[in-house]
Amino acid sequence: MKNRLKVLRAERDWSQQDLATRLDVSRQSVNAIETGRYDPSLPLAFRIADVFEMAIEEIFLRDE
């Protein structure tokens, strides 16, 4: 699953650790999700959406 995490993070000038702290997860988790190696669970996806104040489908995109 593709995502716009890196772009959204850059727009806010957040490091991976900044985002990890906001999500209460490890920096490794943010890195794995951002690079597409790990798809987050629905609860974590909702937390990510809350942090960016966006809808989940605006952050995570279907693989075509």
């Binding site: 997860v25 490890s26 490794q28 988790s29 790990y38 987050p40 974590l44």
Partner: peptide, 9 residues
């Protein structure tokens, strides 16, 4: 482990 990615790993 509360971090789901670390747990998965």
């Amino acid at each position: 482990e509360q971090d789901e990615y670390l747990r998965h790993r």
